[in-house]
Every structure is written in C-alpha cells, then in structure tokens.
Design a protein around this nucleic acid. Structure first.
Length: 344
DNA sequence: GCGATTTGACCTCC
DNA sequence: GGAGGTCAAATCGC
C-alpha cells in the first residue's frame, strides 16, 4: 500500500491561501528545533550535531522569510503541478485508502455532505518494556465507537472519537490499525483537530496528560489503544482552509530510525510534544519533478541506506525546503509496507 | 448506575 | 455490490 502526504489539498486552494498555514508550520518547526538545540546542548554529545542544528534553523528561517516575502506569484506554479478536477487521475489515493474520501477533495465534486477535516497519520510502536501492546496515549480522551475488518488487512481498524464530541462538539476522530508487516507498529490516523477544552490544555511543549488508571486498564483490554510513543507523525492535511486548527498541527517530519537516534541520544530528553513534528508532504505519482525526496531516494532508504540520520541527507532535506516550498509542492512518495516508523 | 467497549447493522460512496 | 465509516443496542467493568 502506498500512502501519500500532502502539503496541499486538491480543492484548488492556492499557495497564497495556504501561506499562513505553511508559515505557522515552519515557525512551529523552528521552535521545536530550538528546543532540540537546547536539549542537544545539554547533552553535549556530538560536535557534528551542534554544527548541524544551526544549519537546520537557518534553513527554516530562510523558508520563513521567503514565504513571508512571497506575494502569491506561486499560484500559477501550483496549478501546473496540482491534480485538478479535470484530471482526477492525478489525485493521489487518500491516506486512508478510501476512494470515497478522495472524492471530497476534488474540485467541483467536493462533497458538502461531509466536512473535509485535516488529516494526518502517525505511526506508533508498542514498547516491550511497558508490557503494552497498544497504541500510545496521546493525551486526549477517546471513545471507541467502532471496529472494522479492513479488506486486505490482517488486523481490524478501530474507530475513535473525542470523548467530548457530544458535550463540546469536538469533531476529532482517530483510527488505529495495527500494521500487517510489524504487529508492534500501529498506524494512527487523526481526522480533525480537537476543539474541546482538553485541546487547549495540551499545547505543544506541555507534558501530556497522564492516563487515569482506570482508563489504562480499559485500554489494555483493547488491542488498539495504547502505546509507548516511539512514533513518527506524518501529516496529511486535507483542509488547509482551517488555518486556526492547523496552528496546533504537526509541521515538518524529519525521519530518522530509532536505533540511530538512540545511538546519538539526541532526542532522549524530549517529550512527545516537544518533538511533535510531522510532514505536510505529499506524493502524487505524477509529481516526480517536484519531488523533494525522490522515489529513488526512498528506494535507497528501503534498501537500507541510512537516509534518515545521515547528516548529509538531513541537511539536504532542510536545505531543500525553501526551494520545495517555492515550487509550491513538497512531495514525498511513501511506501508504508516498507516503513519501519519514524521517531525522534 | 454510569460510562466505555463490542459488534452487527446500516449508511455512504464508488 | 463491495468497502469503509458510523450508529446504536448489548455488554462489560468500575
């Protein structure tokens, strides 16, 4: 199965419309990197890493200044590479694999029956030492409202909605499914942002709410619910019109293998919120020329190349951000089946 | 008793 | 008709 991450949606929204969102995302990523820098300095473990961080920050700053000074000339560029209603075949398959959800995103066919909500996917790995075989507690209260066997998948998908849906009208939902390839990894797709009170208390950088004992016991019953967060978060934003919501959204995902991270011990002191960065990246199969990370590079990754922690690649990734953003598209073609999971 | 989970039925979309 | 998503009654656990 191939999944795609989009930095843009396919409703014809221009980069100009998305610019505030992109700026917000980059700003958040910059802040997070500064946090990382702080922790990294505290650890004082690697000289090369110290040299790397300023470069990353510099790249983000460059991206931000380019975006802030940009006056919307990129719209036409975007139209040249974006799938359109007239050419629906250009539209990538949705991240959840549902052709129906795709139809909501395509131009004139936009369905008004269902609200298009920002969607992003995380991967969470169950942690052996916790004894839990369930996805991570993410700080929010979820209520399971369904479970479904998915065609072609070995494991059922659990459907969760915010506990405060009725009380506060919070529209956030999530779907959790154990991956076929590695049963210790869960794919968690979030749909919509929390608008409930608990969201206001879970700003990035703050510690997560500690699950109540009772809840933890309950979750243990369900194979879909808890995990120790050794995750990566990937963003697929379907609705960039909801700028306010996206202010709290993850921003940029910088993939790395957890074994490599543990080696460098860079992120060991970060909380999940601190490193909450995801990628608003996408990959229409037809967008090769705009690919920031080409399929070839990912194939190399799949073949074992240490793309994710290579300093060269990391720098290349961040250095490429400005040009990728300038070209209106940041695409990443991803193969879930060969994906071991991101972590920071 | 209350709230969460389970699970079969139903709905929506292709 | 098939697949994914949601509903809601039944069930469970505190």
């Amino acid at each position: 199965m191939r999944s795609y991450f989009t930095m843009e949606n396919y409703t014809g929204i221009s980069l100009l419309d998305q610019k505030p969102l992109i700026v917000n995302q980059l700003t958040e990523a910059k802040v997070l990197l500064k946090q990382l820098e702080y922790h990294f300095d505290a650890a004082a473990t690697s000289t090369t890493g110290k040299l790397l961080l300023p470069r990353i920050l510099s790249s983000f700053e460059s991206s931000l200044s380019m975006l802030k000074s940009e006056t919307g000339h990129g719209e036409s560029q975007m139209n040249g590479s974006m799938p359109t209603a007239a050419n629906p075949n250009d539209s990538p398959r949705s991240i959840c694999g549902s052709p129906r959800s795709n139809s909501n995103l395509i131009g004139e066919n936009f369905s008004k029956k269902r609200k298009v909500l920002p969607t992003w996917t995380e991967q969470a790995r169950a942690c052996e030492h916790t004894g839990l075989e369930e996805p991570v507690e993410d700080g929010y209260s979820w209520r399971k409202y369904g479970q479904k066997d998915i065609f072609g998948a070995k494991h059922p998908r659990g459907y969760y909605r915010c506990t405060h849906k009725n009380a506060q009208g919070c529209q956030a939902t999530k779907q959790i499914q154990r991956t076929d390839k590695d049963t210790s990894i869960f794919r968690v797709m979030y749909i919509g942002r929390h608008t409930c009170i608990q969201a206001a208390h879970l700003q990035p950088g703050q510690p997560r709410k500690i699950p109540e004992q009772r809840d933890a016991k309950r979750r243990k019953k369900s194979p879909e619910t808890l995990i120790n967060f050794e995750i990566n978060r990937h963003v697929k934003t379907k609705d960039f019109g909801t700028t306010q919501e996206m202010l709290k959204s993850p921003s940029i995902s910088i993939p790395c293998k957890e074994k490599d991270i543990s080696t460098n011990n860079i992120f060991s002191s970060l909380t999940t919120d601190n490193y909450f960065m995801s990628s608003p990246i996408s990959s229409p199969a037809t967008s090769g020329s705009n690919s920031l990370v080409s399929p070839t590079r990912l194939n190399n990754l799949e073949g074992g190349q240490n793309f994710q922690t290579s300093e060269y690649d990391f720098c290349e990734f961040t250095s490429a951000l400005p040009s990728a953003l300038d070209s209106q598209a940041l695409y990443l073609d991803w193969d879930w089946d060969s994906f071991d999971g991101f972590c920071f």
